[in-house]
């Protein structure tokens, strides 16, 4: 690994992936045979738009077949100051993709002297998902959600992706992963335009709760070990992770509601 002093003709510009390929560190190499269920998987993640920006949330469980392989994985992480990325799919590939994505945004900002636009960031992530298509066809699928605050438009925006790198901007909310179905339903029922920050956080927690109720690969709040989902807001002031104390209160209220209904299902 040696970075040369590029001449102006063959300069890779601000593209970090291109630079890695040039120095022999290609991050997207497809395996030679089927690889599904050999590596840990990560599950329910979601994003909801509210009045001042977006809320992103994700459970903490990673599974390998029927086994719980990790109880405190962080699937929702800041991409930079004004955006975040959440992943579902093969954990190892996804974590490396997130790391590369974060580096790409920082690399561009340092080389060019200003950050990429929010839309440009979504496009970059789309290209990385596309580059992983070979591995995805072998079973190592990664499907992210990208969300952030767009300073040019003064609003929160969110995108989901498919394995081919298809990028779809959503206006209200999105949920993906094995518990994405029930989570989407909860969001659809509870969503209304112009939610306040606390309401959006509560809605996101409720969606994760319901997903964990029916999907074995999604972890619920773990009061025994003090492990709560990752929930964060992104607004003009940047990324703010909601503290476990606040989440404990929110989930306690949801649990109380469930108990009061006396429901067994």
């Amino acid at each position: 690994m040696k970075v040369p002093l590029f001449t102006s003709g063959d300069d890779p510009g601000s593209d970090f992936s291109a630079l890695l390929r040039r120095v022999g560190l290609d991050p997207f190499q497809a395996p030679s045979g089927p690889a599904a269920n050999l590596a840990p998987h990560a599950t329910t993640v979601l994003a909801v738009r509210f009045a001042d920006g977006v809320v992103m949330a994700g459970d903490r469980r990673a599974t390998m077949g029927n086994r719980i392989s990790n109880r405190e994985m962080e699937k929702v992480v800041p991409a930079d100051r004004h955006s975040g990325v959440a992943i579902s799919g093969t954990a190892g590939v996804a974590m490396d993709m997130i790391k590369l994505f974060q580096l790409q945004l920082e690399h561009y900002e340092k080389l060019d002297g200003r950050p990429i636009s929010l839309e440009g960031k979504a496009n970059q992530l789309s290209q990385m998902v596309r580059a992983n298509l070979g591995a995805a066809m072998q079973g190592l699928v990664v499907v992210p959600i990208f969300a952030g605050y767009d300073p040019l438009r003064g609003t929160g925006r969110l995108w989901d992706f498919d394995i081919t790198g298809g990028r779809y901007e959503e206006r209200e909310f999105v949920a993906t992963g094995s518990g994405g179905g029930p989570a989407s339903t909860v969001l659809k029922v509870g969503y209304r335009p112009g939610l306040a920050s606390a309401e959006a956080v509560e809605l996101a927690c409720r969606a994760l709760w319901e997903a964990a109720e029916v999907d074995s690969a999604t972890g619920g709040p773990d009061a025994l070990r003090g492990i709560y989902p990752v929930v964060a807001t992104i607004t003009a002031d940047g990324w703010l992770r909601i503290s476990d104390d606040v989440l404990a209160t929110v989930f306690a209220a949801i649990a109380d509601g469930q108990r009061a209904r006396g429901s067994t299902s």
Partner: peptide
């Protein structure tokens, strides 16, 4: 500026690897 770009690249690749 060419030296600066070399520095950013070198540091980012090293931090990644």
């Amino acid at each position: 500026d060419q030296l600066r770009r070399f520095g950013v690249r070198n540091a980012d690749v090293k931090g990644y690897a």
